[in-house]
Write a protein that binds this DNA or RNA. Structure first.
Lengths: 237, 237
DNA sequence: ACCTGAACACCGTTCAAGT
DNA sequence: ACCTGAACACCGTTCAAGT
């Protein structure tokens, strides 16, 4: 009759599993997320998870649902360019909160409802702005992974904190070798106004992200106002 | 004295290990590439590999070296825009030969010599075209993973061939449900001139790739001729 | 110098069993 | 209906040993 007392303090359910998985990935990294470790975190035996997610792939899909739902909803009464810009920058904020999300989003090919909702409303912004379905199609491809807030790191900005500190003399010698073999890389590394230090220091991601995003948005606008359309003739090449 | 006869038919070396790894990934997929399976393919015990690569991470770095070296060298005596365009399209050809390369290139953060050489010569094209180091810096970020030939798939073009064929009636019902819940997605899927079938059929990747690439290159050109420079004032936001 | 064998500490997932 | 325990077929990598 004391049976009720021995059930787990909180009954497991799909949402609790997904939240714990996101939390674990945030905190320990995506490579540390295993079914076994996640089960341990939830105080449960590994096989208990399989009543709530079919397998690890479905777990990852569920995690994507959770984080994509964190992206701000579309701003109402906003013209297309500002609306897309705001939305994409919101996606980027989400991505910064979940560093593992980039690789997981890229590895997933299945489209869960939250992902489809995000695509649907982003496409809707261009259509509402008067873009043809044709142009919108190509524009979505061109926007590409940038629509998820992805930014390109040319060099790894954050060195592994677990790595031993580098001797300044060694560092200087390395820079010297870089300068000889890769003069152009060194030139643009030190050129950016926001970063007068060395390659290893990384760039202002936000500036780089907005630079590329606005370049694309301006390009889309130019095509739109000029009445661009994909011509079958030029496409046979 | 017959000792020479019992050594492996072909002595293992780093290059043979890397070539076999690339071949295995090409043929069986990156998820099938394990140290154990690779060793088996080479007719050797798993631990034999560790004399030639330090660990699996270094194996992946080595594989990147092999495939990046396959990208065509820069075309001589070519103005920047055509030169960059040719190079990037060559990278894309390499990527099509090695479908696993995308995820591996994205997961790597270390820069091996072949990767640095590729960056160096691409940067050199912009500088030779008269771009400032400042603009070139941002342009390289904006080009982003497209410089490796990456294209964005909005929907998974190629369905898993191992999956059972879908009943046409089921397929039609799915399309109906899609049309109701995601009308915009359906609209742009059917709109592109080159693809009048359904979402599942995928797009003309080459057209989409060149569309986005040329949009970026045209944008770069416009900034260049207008004497663009990153202003510290606008960057404090 | 290069390869081997056995072992360790992990994986995802199955199956049959418990309550 | 939900959780458990034992087992299977894998991983990457170590260490000490062989030739």
């Amino acid at each position: 009759m004391a049976q009720v007392l021995v059930v787990p303090r909180v009954r497991l359910n799909r949402d609790r599993v997904l939240q714990a998985a996101v939390g674990l990935a945030d905190q320990a990294g995506i490579e540390a997320l295993s079914m076994r470790r996640l089960a341990e975190e939830l105080g449960v035996v590994p096989m208990a998870l399989y009543k709530h997610v079919a397998n690890k792939d479905e777990l990852l899909d569920g995690m994507v649902e959770v984080i994509v739902a964190e992206i701000d909803p579309p701003a109402p009464d906003t013209e297309w360019k500002a609306a897309v810009r705001l939305r994409v920058l919101s996606a980027r904020q989400m991505l910064l909160r979940h560093p593992w999300a980039r690789s997981v989003l890229e590895s997933r090919t299945t489209h869960t409802p939250a992902v489809l909702d995000y695509l649907e409303s982003t496409i809707g912004m261009f259509l509402a702005g008067g873009f043809s379905a044709d142009l919108t199609h190509h524009v979505m491809h061109a926007l590409g992974s940038r629509m998820w807030g992805f930014t390109q790191e040319l060099f790894d900005a954050s060195a592994d904190p677990a790595r031993p500190p580098v001797d300044p003399a060694v560092q200087a010698a390395r820079m010297q070798a870089m300068a000889e073999r890769y003069p152009h890389i060194l030139q643009i590394s030190t050129a950016a106004a926001h970063d007068d230090s060395v390659v290893a220091h990384g760039c202002d991601d936000r500036f780089e992200f907005e630079f590329a995003l606005d370049l694309l948005l301006d390009g889309f606008e130019r095509l739109h106002v000029s009445g661009w359309s994909s011509s079958p003739v030029t496409r046979t090449a």
